[in-house]
């Protein structure tokens, strides 16, 4: 045992700016818990809406919201989204609202200068449009499991390869995300003073992440071969129609009709 190891260290650390570490850790934690929550989203019940319909109508809503110039329709779409949001579990509600608020605030700040120029349309319509669209998409992702979304994509005739890659990507994000989190914790615990080479350390974490990823890809490949994978990937699913589906389609069809009605009305007004 060397002498220095036998003595207690007399060490007073200097402060260092390492918010980048805590921020990265928080970002990863949020990411992993989001995917976890998504993965354990409520199992489909009798009233569950088929993710295929959700995907179709969420896309439609996004298009209509983007197209419309009428605040009345936007207000109806926003109300629909908020009503949908307000019956979600509190955790979903909070998350979806937080994301929506952040994006909307960002949009608002970007558009502020246009108000100086007198363009009030952008400043009022755009943030509301952004909030409505982002919240609709987030509701879709929070109320459906990833696997359900994938099978919905599949119904859109997305190539098997794409569905397969999307599927394994999510799993890898969690696995690799967890080991990365671990690395960042290790970096944090060992950052006991002033680090003059922050980029070196972070790049090491990312670089070793890449090498581990590669290793993992090879392992997955071998495992798939061992289980008789031939390069074809099929998605199997059942299709059923529930009461929830009917209600969901009804409300969304109503919104589409409202859009057509309002747009025609407005055009007639202009004409």
């Amino acid at each position: 045992m060397p002498e220095w190891l036998l003595q207690s260290e007399n060490y007073a650390p200097r402060a260092d700016k390492d918010t980048f570490l805590s921020k990265s850790i928080l970002a990863l934690l949020g990411l992993i818990s989001k995917i976890r929550a998504q993965d354990t989203a409520a199992a489909p019940t009798r009233y569950a809406v088929n993710p295929f319909f959700k995907l179709v109508f969420t896309l439609t809503l996004a298009v209509l919201v983007s197209l419309t110039r009428e605040f009345a329709f936007l207000f109806a779409a926003l109300t629909y989204v908020l009503l949908y949001l307000c019956v979600q579990p509190i955790r979903t509600l909070r998350r979806v609202l937080a994301t929506g608020a952040a994006v909307t605030a960002f949009t608002f700040v970007i558009l502020l200068p246009t108000a100086l120029g007198g363009n009030g349309y952008s400043l009022t319509m755009m943030p509301v449009k952004v909030f409505t669209a982002v919240t609709a998409v987030n509701l879709l992702s929070h109320t459906s499991r990833w696997s359900e979304l994938l099978s919905a994509l599949k119904r859109f005739r997305a190539p098997d390869m794409l569905v397969f890659v999307l599927d394994i990507t999510i799993r890898y994000i969690v696995m690799l995300g967890e080991t990365t989190l671990e690395s960042l914790y290790a970096l944090k615990l060992r950052s006991v003073g002033r680090n003059t080479r922050k980029y070196n350390a972070l790049s090491g974490v990312a670089g070793s992440l890449f090498l581990r990823s590669r290793q993992m890809a090879e392992d997955t490949h071998s495992a798939m071969l061992c289980r008789g994978f031939t390069g074809e990937y099929r998605v199997y699913q059942k299709f059923s129609f529930t009461l929830g589906d009917a209600g969901y389609i009804l409300v969304n069809a109503g919104l589409i009709l409202l859009y057509i009605y309002i747009t025609r009305d407005a055009n007639a007004g202009i004409g």
């Binding site: 260290e9 060490y11 650390p13 402060a15 260092d16 290790a186 615990l189 060992r190 006991v192």
Partner: peptide
């Protein structure tokens, strides 16, 4: 920052 760093120096962790 400072206090946490002093603490981390005194407690070593092997994952």
């Amino acid at each position: 920052n400072k206090a946490a760093k002093a603490f981390h120096q005194r407690v070593g962790f092997v994952f």
